[in-house]
């Protein structure tokens, strides 16, 4: 009997999953990706929350940049401000900042651009009182995208610098 109940509930879950998938399929195409993509990119900079991971609780690990730019938006500065605060509260922590570019640029130039972005984020953290010897930088150019598609949203997600804890 118990066994039967379990099987029935399994079946029920399967039905639920199926109807959920069906519901997804009936959602007008593009509503999850392209309509959000329009609102998630402002002035060439990604402002959404996809792909972002946490360096610590309530401390996002990455900031985003406009095409061929390394200047920090207000929102990037806010994120880096949180990272600085966390680094102050955790004086033994060290980080590496990885600089990245999107695929729309030559490999060698993008390596230099990734370095610029990582350094720009590092400079900001230093301006907030974090010692430079706690922050290393590395550029991956366009070699390690986080999003594989060739569209504006993916590219804006890939134009980023990511702070990763190294100890």
């Amino acid at each position: 009997m118990t066994h039967n109940v379990k099987r029935i509930s399994n079946l029920f879950i399967m039905l639920l999953v199926t109807s959920f998938l069906a519901a997804c399929a009936t959602v007008p195409t593009g509503s999850t990706s392209s309509s959000s993509s329009k609102s998630d990119v402002v002035g060439g900079v990604y402002v959404g929350t996809e792909t972002i991971e946490m360096l610590a609780v309530n401390v996002p690990d990455r900031v985003f940049y406009a095409y061929d730019s390394y200047s920090l938006t207000a929102s990037a500065q806010a994120t880096l401000g949180k990272q600085a605060k966390w680094l102050k509260a955790n004086p033994s922590a060290s980080i590496a900042i990885e600089g990245h570019a999107d695929e729309r640029g030559t490999r060698e130039y993008n390596l230099a651009l990734g370095d610029r972005r990582a350094s720009s984020a590092k400079d900001y953290l230093m301006s907030q009182g974090i010692s430079s010897n706690r922050i290393s930088t590395i550029s991956y150019g366009k070699e390690r995208p986080v999003s594989n598609s060739s569209n504006d949203t993916s590219w804006s997600q890939n134009r980023r610098s990511v702070s990763v804890r190294t100890n």
């Binding site: 060698e108 390596l111 230099a112 610029r116 350094s119 720009s120 550029s139």
Partner: peptide, 24 residues
């Protein structure tokens, strides 16, 4: 980071970029 290497025509030198503090 050193990158974008290329040999001189006689093969005796390597010319390349060095990225340091955001400047290449």
């Amino acid at each position: 980071m050193t990158f974008a290497p290329r040999f001189s025509p006689d093969g005796s030198k390597i010319i390349m970029s060095l990225a340091k503090d955001g400047n290449s």
